[in-house]
Each structure stands twice: as structure tokens, then as C-alpha cells.
């Protein structure tokens, strides 16, 4: 464990707390893509299936259980408690275009052709693009609540912080995980546009608005 990975994981935790906080205080899931949140449940379930047969550390175990359960809880909030506040007509990105290609890619580019290994690889590829429905939704409405932008900033920072972690691990441990690294760089890249608006507008106290 190094400082970059720890900060990355803490940013990931923070993003979830911000999202749940937003929903509870505004009693609404307006502006949040249900599809993106559902993809995260799929990502966590397919990646953390190793909970059933591997022990890494208490930290690793607790975090995995937290990510699975909190993502399920968010889905529950959106589907039941705050359902009337969700507008499916804005959440129109076709997830088949993400899940299908990610699965095919996982079948082709993986470390070993085994079920759990392919599921792990699939989860890495899917996580990289799972934010698309959310970004697509914001593109359509052209705006976002400030709290939603804090959520996205923390979520984007999480994978961005994994990049210096991988560089650090290469020099200290000699390990490189090409699948995670390439997907992580793509994932971070998808946030660059958002980060630009976040830093130049939201952090200056302005509303998050995209040019028409």
C-alpha cells in the first residue's frame, strides 16, 4: 500500500458518501444516471467474486464488501425510495454498447482464459467506460448540480490516483498490470473534459454548465 493508492481508495469512498448524501439531503436522485450506477454494481460483482476464494487483507476485504453493498444500496435508493425523481427519458445511453464490447475484449485480451480471470478483466474494461451514461446525461441536460460534480470529481480522482500508484509499484516492486494500467488511463482520460469545467467553473464558485 502506498500513499497514491490509499488516497485513490479514499477518494472512491468519498465519492460514494457524497452521492448518498446528495440523495438523502435533496431526497432526489435527479441528475444521476441509473445506468451508470447499475454498471458499477456489475463491475463490483464481477471483480470481487474473488472474495469467495481469496484472502488478501482485512482492508481489502472490508473495502470490497463496502463497494458491493453501497452500490447495491444506491441502486435501491434510485429504484425504490427516490424513484419518482428519476427521469429515464434523460438516461438513454445504450449500455449494450458498453457491456458487449467489454466482454468481447475480455475474452480476447486477458491474462488467462479462465472464468474468474475473464470476469475480472471484463470488470476492469467495464469500469473504464461505466461513466458514459452519466456523462451522456449531463451532455443532454447541459448542467449538473454542484454536489453531483463533487461526486464525479472524487470518482474520477480515484482512478487518476491509481496511475502514480502503478508507477510507484513498478519502481518499488517491479510489477506491472498492463490491463489495469491501459484501462485506468482510458478511464481517467474520459474525465479530462469534466475536470476542466470542474476546476475552471465549479471550484470558482460558478454553476456547472456546458456550452450549448
Amino acid at each position: 500500500m502506498n500513499i497514491f493508492r490509499l488516497l485513490g481508495d479514499l477518494a472512491h469512498l468519498a465519492s460514494i458518501f457524497i452521492l448518498v448524501h446528495k440523495m438523502h439531503t435533496t431526497r432526489s436522485c435527479r441528475g444521476i444516471s441509473f445506468k451508470t450506477q447499475a454498471l458499477y454494481v456489475l463491475v463490483f460483482l464481477t471483480r470481487y467474486i474473488d472474495l469467495l476464494y481469496t484472502w488478501i487483507s482485512l482492508y481489502n476485504f472490508v473495502m470490497k464488501v463496502f463497494f458491493i453493498s453501497s452500490s447495491g444500496y444506491i441502486l435501491y435508493l434510485m429504484k425504490y425510495r427516490f424513484r419518482p425523481t428519476h427521469d429515464p427519458s434523460l438516461d438513454t445511453f445504450k449500455v449494450e454498447y458498453l457491456v458487449g464490447p467489454c466482454f468481447v475484449l475480455a475474452l480476447i485480451f486477458n491474462y488467462r482464459f479462465e472464468v474468474t480471470e475473464i470476469l475480472w478483466t471484463f470488470s476492469i474494461y467495464l469500469e473504464a467506460v461505466a461513466i458514459f451514461p452519466q456523462l451522456f446525461m449531463m451532455q443532454r441536460t447541459g448542467e449538473a448540480e454542484t454536489i453531483t460534480t463533487h461526486y464525479l470529481a472524487a470518482l474520477g480522482a480515484y482512478r487518476a490516483l491509481y496511475i502514480p500508484n502503478w508507477i510507484y509499484r513498478y519502481f518499488t516492486e517491479g510489477t506491472v498490470d498492463p490491463i489495469a494500467v491501459v484501462a485506468g488511463i482510458v478511464q481517467t482520460g474520459l474525465y479530462l473534459d469534466f475536470f476542466y469545467v470542474y476546476v475552471t467553473k465549479v471550484l470558482q464558485g460558478q454553476k456547472f454548465e456546458l456550452p450549448a
Binding site: D9, D50, N60, K64, W120, E173, G174, T175, V176, D177
Partner: peptide
């Protein structure tokens, strides 16, 4: 030398 990845990340 580069070793194969260990899956200890989240």
C-alpha cells in the same frame, strides 16, 4: 524484471 500482476488492488 517485470513480474506478473498480483490482484491486491480494488
Amino acid at each position: 524484471s517485470v513480474r506478473p500482476p498480483v490482484k491486491d488492488e480494488l
